[in-house]
Amino acid sequence: MRIAFMGSPDFSVPALKALHQAGHDIAAVYCQPPRPAGRGQKETPCPVHRAALELGLEVRTPTRLKRDTAQHDAFAALGLDAAVVAAYGLILPKAMLDAPKRGCLNIHASLLPRWRGAAPIHAAILAGDSESGITIMRMDEGLDTGPMLLTQATPIGPDTTVQALHDALAAIGADLILRALAEDPPAIAQPEDGVTYAPKLTKEDGRLDWNKDAAALERRVRALNPWPGTFFDHRGEQIRVLAARVEAGSGAPGTALDDAALVACGTGALRLARLQRPGRAAMDADAFLRGFALPRGTQLG
């Protein structure tokens, strides 16, 4: 089948490789343009760009699509049976959505209509959901509102991290898009109830609010590392929290309840298990505290 692939981050790479290995004719790969990265701010291609080059595929990196009719025409000229979209990063205008014979099929990392939007993997863990999954959806002009072709669920355990869930969903997405292209299942409209939204995350979403329930903060630590990262302020520094667990304890929110990084929350307490100072290596709490003590009674920001 002649297709275009449209994606940018690591999440999208397994699907691209699976489509190539399955023998689909990938006419072009669309992804975000190279951007400055690292200490030297060197122009760096995104993961899909790198994978496409390794596979010998044509790569296109437009900076905008909405009103660029030349891009619309170039896309239509590919003569596609379908386009596969996975975390691409640009909104596709109607002219492009309508160009492939079977439309544009999106690999969405949630069980729609729950968690439409930009950060569904993080949102599922933050909310304490017991499962997530992949939905293959035929795209329309709405925000993840198109009809569904296939779904597959996967459990979220009490220790599931965002990276583990990301990797599981990426693998499911690669398998499910192959099925969708091969089977051409009927499209089913999304239910009108149960709609939730997962907005784009910002750095400030990682700030730990000690007034919240300890279980909610523990989920936030699992959901937001490595990016945007969870943190608190102390001694003029932003201290990252990379792992934590809920324990019994009570006190004024944000107060250290012992000398081993047990912090009182709105309900319960959070044991900080792995921490990192700016510009330093991440450490388990016992090693961290030898150089940056948080004695009982310390108030954390």
Rank of each mutant, 00 (worst) to 15 (best):
L78P: 09
G157P: 10
A124D: 01
S110G: 02
G117H: 01
A51D: 08
A174V: 03
I26N: 02
L270A: 06
D209A: 12
I136P: 11
I3H: 01
T63I: 03
A282Y: 07
E141W: 03
D81E: 15
Q238Y: 06
G229S: 03
L181V: 06
A99C: 01
M139W: 08
F5C: 06
A287E: 12
A260P: 06
P14S: 01
A248E: 15
A223K: 00
F231P: 03
T61D: 02
F292Y: 11
A82Q: 05
R64W: 00
A216E: 15
M96S: 09
R271E: 04
T145Y: 00
P14C: 07
D259W: 08
H122N: 15
Q190W: 08
P100V: 12
A256E: 04
A76M: 05
L201G: 02
T202E: 12
V59P: 04
L201P: 13
R179M: 05
L294S: 09
Q32G: 01
Q299F: 05
V246P: 14
A198R: 07
A28W: 06
A273C: 14
G301C: 13
T202I: 14
R277Q: 09
L217G: 14
L92P: 15
L112M: 08
G206F: 14
E183P: 08
L208N: 14
M139H: 01
G23S: 01
A127F: 01
P93F: 06
V221K: 03
L201D: 10
I3Y: 02
E58S: 13
L224N: 00
L78R: 07
A51N: 10
A182F: 01
A37C: 02
G251C: 14
P113C: 03
T202R: 15
S110V: 04
A170M: 03
R220H: 00
G251S: 10
P14F: 03
M96W: 03
E183Q: 10
P45H: 08
K66E: 12
L78C: 10
E204Y: 12
G254I: 06
A281R: 09
L55F: 06
G266D: 14
M139D: 01
T298C: 11
A174I: 00
P36R: 00
K94F: 07
G89E: 06
L224I: 06
T267Y: 04
G7D: 05
D259H: 09
L112D: 04
L270E: 12
P155F: 11
L105N: 08
T135K: 00
I239H: 09
L289R: 06
K203D: 14
T151W: 00
K17T: 07
L80M: 07
R116L: 04
P62A: 02
A18W: 12
F75A: 07
D25V: 11
W115H: 10
L262V: 14
G236D: 08
T230P: 03
T135I: 05
A82F: 04
C46K: 13
T63D: 02
G23D: 07
S110D: 10
R219W: 06
D193L: 12
I136Q: 10
H24W: 10
T160N: 06
F288Y: 10
C104D: 01
L92S: 14
L80A: 01
I239F: 11
P158W: 02
S12H: 04
I107Q: 00
D184F: 02
D129I: 13
R290I: 05
L53E: 15
V29D: 07
G279S: 03
